[in-house]
Design a protein around this nucleic acid. Structure first.
Lengths: 140, 140
DNA sequence: TATATATACTTGTATTATACAACTAGATTG
DNA sequence: CAATCTAGTTGTATAATACAAGTATATATA
């Protein structure tokens, strides 16, 4: 169970290393990872509140509350009242938020283009597909 | 470039999400991710110093210095003088360190076994191989 | 060989991301 | 309508990290 047959062990290890490497690579573009993912989510989902974002990323509500407050302070998102719930707000990306999101996304993609420049299209497709599947699997 | 043809964009996004999910999943077993990777590295490389570990993980030397000091305080590693360099130490896993490493590795593997329980062996192999390749690619 | 420079740490300080607990205000339910 | 639930905020604590300054040892150079 500790030889090359131990595929589970390999995956476990490589994911841990990938996390380490990706974190060590630091921020690319003007947004940090949290801000980037949050803005991406708002871009995809349209205006949502803190709770929905916290659920999506499995973060504590308080964490996301601070992150969205920081984004608001920087003018990257706008807080709208939720007409259906007076306790909650809805966050919407501002023009400047979209600008920085686009810029950061491009920078990140450039990094991966460079990283994967020698990979075949076939292997890229496989990796993308399997990562997507793994991430979906994570959602228990 | 923003359709399904954008494989690079997909990979970039899925890696970011995987990092988020893996971090959110929290610690498994008795060791945190840093301690786990550090002990694994010591297990593989044999006794090495702070610098080598910091290089391996692209962390600041000061960060690794504190991490190894913490491991030493917990009795998971032992500090040996480096006979070839009076400035440096070499760290070696203790028996208790090996015990906790094994325990944590097993716990982590169990988690992935569960996660990947419906995957074909073929897909697992592909994922493991592609992740390993991606990580090697990260080493510029 | 003596001195200057480089290296491997260690420690002080600051920042950031996170969680949990206590609280507030608004929503839902019996 | 009172009791309870829920969304969010804010206070506090912790952990992981980096950078800067300092120490001790090693290496290179004059």
């Amino acid at each position: 169970m500790e030889q090359e047959q131990d595929i589970i062990g390999l995956i476990e290890y490589e994911v841990a290393i990938l996390v380490r490497r990706a974190v060590a690579a630091g921020n690319v573009g003007s947004l940090d990872r949290s801000a980037y993912l949050l803005l991406r989510q708002l871009e995809m989902q349209g205006p949502v509140g803190v709770k929905a974002l916290a659920d999506e990323f499995r973060l504590d509500i308080s964490t996301v509350s601070r992150q969205t407050a920081a984004l608001e302070a920087k003018g990257l998102v706008q807080r709208l009242p939720n007409p259906e719930d007076g306790r909650a707000s809805l966050f919407q990306i501002t023009d400047e938020g979209m600008r920085q999101l686009t810029e950061t996304r491009t920078a990140r993609k450039n990094r991966y283009s460079l990283l994967l420049k020698d990979w075949s299209d076939e292997d890229r497709r496989k990796l993308g597909g399997l990562l997507a599947r793994l991430n979906r699997t994570f959602i228990d």
